Simulated scan of single mutants.
Amino acid sequence: MKVLLYFEGEKALGKSGIGRALEHQKKALAASGVNYTMDASCTDYDVVHINTYGLKSRAMVQKAKKAGKKIVYHAHSTEEDFRNSFIGSNQLSPLVKKYLISLYSQADHIVTPTDYSKELIKSYGITVPISAVSNGIDLEKYKKSEEKETAFRNHFNIKDGEKVIICVGLFFERKGIIDFIEVAKLFPEYRFIWFGHVPLMSIPSHIRKIVTEDHPENVEFPGYIRGEIIEGAYSGSDLFFFPSYEETEGIVVLEAIASHQNLLVRDIPVYEGWLDKDINCYMGNNNEEFAELLQQIIEKQKPDLSNIAYEVVENRSIEKVGEELKKIYTSVLDEKILSENSKTAHQC
C-alpha cells in the first residue's frame, strides 16, 4: 500500500493548524509503517489523502478518479469555522459550504478530527463514510523542558514572579482575539502573549487595528514563532487561555495539554466527550466568567488540572493516529478489491 499525501499551498498554509496536521500525518504514517509520498506527480500510489480544498485539490480529485485511485478526504474545514475569519468570510461562507460538499462528496472516505465535526459534515447531507480521527500530538516534542522554558523566558525577558497568559492562533475573530484583549485589559499586572500570524491585509480592519495598535500595553503579538521558544511558552507560562468560538478540534489545545499546562477555553460543542469542565480543564461562556476563572487559576485558588488532562493526549498520540489512518486506507482498498471481484464474477 502506498499513500499520496496531497497538500495544496504548503508554503502558505504551513503555519496553520492544517499545516501542523500534515506534519503529524507524516509522522503517524511513518510510525505505522505506511509507505507514503508527497510527490503529486507520482502515479503508483493506491490511496490519495487530500488535506486542502483549493482548485488544485479539486483537480487532484478528478485526476485520482480518472486513474481509478481511492480518495480519502481530510475534512479540516467546515462552513462554521470559515466564518469570522478573513475579509468577506461571512458573505462567502454559504458558497464555501456548497464547494466543500461538492469536494467531500467525491471521496471514498472522509476523515475529520472530532465527533463534533463529523456530525457537522453529516448535517450537510453528505453520505460518504466518515471517521473521526484526531489530528494527533507529538508527545515527545511538547515534553516539559527547563531548557525550553528558559529560552522562552529569556526571549521575552520575563521576570521572576511575573505571570504570563498565552494563546496560539491566527488573527481571527472566530479565535476569540477580541475577548482575549478585553480580558487582558482587566489584568494590567499580568502579561498576555498571543502567538500566531496571518497577513494583515487579509483580515477585517477592526481586527487589524487590534493587532497593530489598539491593544493594552500588557498584550504582545510576537507573530509566528516555532521551536524551543513556543514549546517553552506552552509549559513555562501560567495559563493557556483559548477563547475560540469554533474549532474542528484545536491542535493548539492538544499542544497545551501535552505540555502539562492548565487550560481555560470557551464551553463549545467541539470539546464534548474529551474535555470536561472543572475535571480536566476550565471553561467559561463569556468574558466575565473568563476573568473570574483566569484570576483564580493564576493565583492558585483553583486546583491544577494539567496532569488529569494529560490522559486526553495519551489517547491521541502520533502512533495511535497512524494505526487509525492505516485501518481506513486498508478498508477503502478492501472495498476496491471487493468491487473488482464483484465485476469479474458478474462478467463470468
Score class of each variant (00 low, 15 high):
V3D: 00
L4V: 05
E8A: 11
E10V: 15
L13V: 11
S16D: 12
I18Q: 07
A21P: 12
L22Y: 07
L22M: 04
K26S: 13
S32F: 08
G33R: 04
V34T: 03
M38E: 05
A40M: 02
S41F: 14
Y45V: 12
V48Y: 00
I50W: 00
Y53H: 03
G54E: 02
M60P: 02
Q62H: 04
G68E: 08
V72I: 09
Y73W: 14
H74T: 06
A75I: 01
S77H: 14
T78V: 15
F82N: 06
N84G: 14
I87F: 07
G88K: 15
P94A: 13
L95M: 13
L95G: 13
Y99T: 10
S105I: 05
Q106Y: 08
A107C: 01
I110D: 00
T114G: 01
D115L: 13
Y124D: 07
Y124K: 08
I130M: 11
S131F: 02
A132Q: 08
S134E: 05
S134V: 05
G136E: 02
D138W: 10
K143A: 15
A151Y: 13
G161K: 05
V164C: 10
I166Q: 08
F171E: 01
F171N: 03
E173G: 09
E173A: 12
G176Y: 00
I178D: 03
D179V: 08
F180W: 05
E182G: 02
W194H: 15
F195E: 10
F195C: 09
G196N: 10
P199V: 10
L200Y: 15
H206L: 02
R208F: 04
I210K: 12
I210G: 06
T212W: 00
D214V: 12
P216C: 10
E217D: 13
N218I: 06
V219W: 14
E220Y: 12
G227C: 02
E228T: 04
L239A: 02
L239I: 03
F240S: 04
F242M: 06
P243K: 07
E246V: 09
G250I: 04
G250V: 11
A258Q: 06
P269D: 06
C281V: 07
G284M: 11
E289A: 09
Q295Y: 04
Q296Y: 03
E299T: 14
E299W: 09
K300N: 07
K302L: 11
D304Q: 07
L305Y: 05
S306G: 10
E311M: 01
I318A: 14
E319D: 11
G322S: 14
I328P: 03
L333D: 11
I337G: 08
N341G: 09
N341P: 08
S342N: 06
K343L: 09
T344N: 05
